[in-house]
Every structure is written in C-alpha cells, then in structure tokens.
Computed example of a mutant assay.
Amino acid sequence: MIQVTIKKHGPSGKITSFTMEGHAEFAEYGKDLVCAAATAVSFGALNAILSLTEAKLQIEQGRNGGFLRCIVPENIPDGEQEKVQLLLEGMVVSLQTIERDYSKHININFH
C-alpha cells in the first residue's frame, strides 16, 4: 500500500511537507495503474512548482522507487508561497480521488 503523509502547519493550514512511501501492489510492476497515477500526480505537482515558481523545495527520492519526500521551506515569499500551496492542494485533491476509488492500495493521512 502507498502511504501518503501530508504535514500542515497548525494555524495557517499550509502544507509544510509530504511523504509518499510503499507500493500500491494493485498489479504487477509496470502495469500498476494506482502506482502510475500517484506517481504522475505527485511528480506533476513538483514539476509544476519547480517550473512555475521560484521555490527551492527539498526533495528526496528512494533509489528503487517507493519513496518520495518534499519539504517546503518556510522562507518562501508570500506570493510564491500562495502558488506553491495551490499546486500542492491540487495534488492532494487528485490523490484523494485516487484514494476514494482504490482505498486498499493508497492511504492518505494528515498531521
């Protein structure tokens, strides 16, 4: 199962980091639609942030897949932070849509 942990800052509700780890095990490697969807959504969001904002995210990936962590620095200017948050919230909505249909293969937690 893919475990997604979204960390938010208390009062502001801003996403400060997210971690995805594990494998969906929906189908064999290379044919796993849940894994492909979660990967496309998360990497798409990160690529959009890196292309459309000046934010310097801290990104860590596992060598063999199955692990992705992104930490959003606190020192991003407000205008850029709004863009980053919008793109991350869009990612969360997309992941929740996957979770709704494939809850045996992906789980999202908020902290």
Rank of each mutant, 00 (worst) to 15 (best):
1 M>L: 12
4 V>A: 05
6 I>A: 00
8 K>Y: 02
9 H>W: 10
9 H>G: 09
10 G>P: 07
10 G>E: 10
11 P>W: 05
12 S>Q: 12
14 K>P: 00
14 K>V: 11
14 K>T: 07
15 I>Y: 08
17 S>K: 02
17 S>R: 05
18 F>C: 04
18 F>V: 10
21 E>I: 12
21 E>T: 14
21 E>V: 06
22 G>F: 04
23 H>P: 07
25 E>C: 13
26 F>C: 12
27 A>H: 07
27 A>F: 05
27 A>Q: 08
28 E>P: 10
28 E>G: 13
28 E>I: 13
29 Y>D: 12
31 K>P: 00
33 L>V: 15
34 V>T: 07
34 V>R: 08
34 V>N: 04
36 A>D: 01
36 A>R: 03
37 A>L: 15
37 A>V: 14
38 A>D: 01
38 A>W: 01
39 T>P: 05
39 T>M: 04
44 G>E: 12
44 G>M: 10
44 G>S: 10
45 A>L: 10
45 A>M: 09
45 A>Q: 04
46 L>K: 04
47 N>F: 08
49 I>E: 01
49 I>M: 01
49 I>P: 03
50 L>C: 14
50 L>V: 14
51 S>C: 02
51 S>F: 02
52 L>N: 08
54 E>N: 15
54 E>H: 14
55 A>S: 13
56 K>P: 00
57 L>N: 03
59 I>E: 01
59 I>F: 09
60 E>D: 11
61 Q>L: 14
62 G>Y: 06
63 R>F: 09
63 R>S: 06
63 R>Y: 03
64 N>Y: 11
65 G>I: 06
67 F>S: 10
67 F>E: 04
67 F>T: 05
68 L>F: 11
68 L>A: 05
68 L>S: 04
69 R>I: 04
70 C>S: 12
71 I>W: 02
71 I>K: 11
71 I>V: 15
72 V>K: 01
73 P>Q: 02
73 P>H: 02
73 P>N: 00
74 E>C: 05
74 E>Q: 02
74 E>K: 06
75 N>V: 14
75 N>Y: 12
76 I>L: 06
76 I>Q: 02
77 P>M: 13
77 P>D: 15
78 D>R: 08
78 D>T: 12
80 E>T: 10
82 E>M: 13
82 E>N: 02
82 E>C: 03
82 E>G: 04
83 K>E: 03
83 K>N: 01
84 V>F: 12
84 V>C: 13
84 V>G: 08
84 V>I: 14
85 Q>H: 09
87 L>F: 09
91 M>S: 00
92 V>P: 02
92 V>C: 03
92 V>G: 02
92 V>K: 09
93 V>W: 07
94 S>H: 03
94 S>V: 02
94 S>K: 00
95 L>Y: 04
95 L>M: 04
96 Q>F: 06
96 Q>E: 15
96 Q>T: 03
96 Q>C: 09
96 Q>V: 02
98 I>M: 09
98 I>E: 05
98 I>Y: 00
101 D>M: 09
102 Y>S: 11
102 Y>V: 14
103 S>T: 08
103 S>I: 06
104 K>C: 12
104 K>M: 11
104 K>L: 15
105 H>F: 15
105 H>G: 00
105 H>I: 07
110 F>T: 10
111 H>L: 12
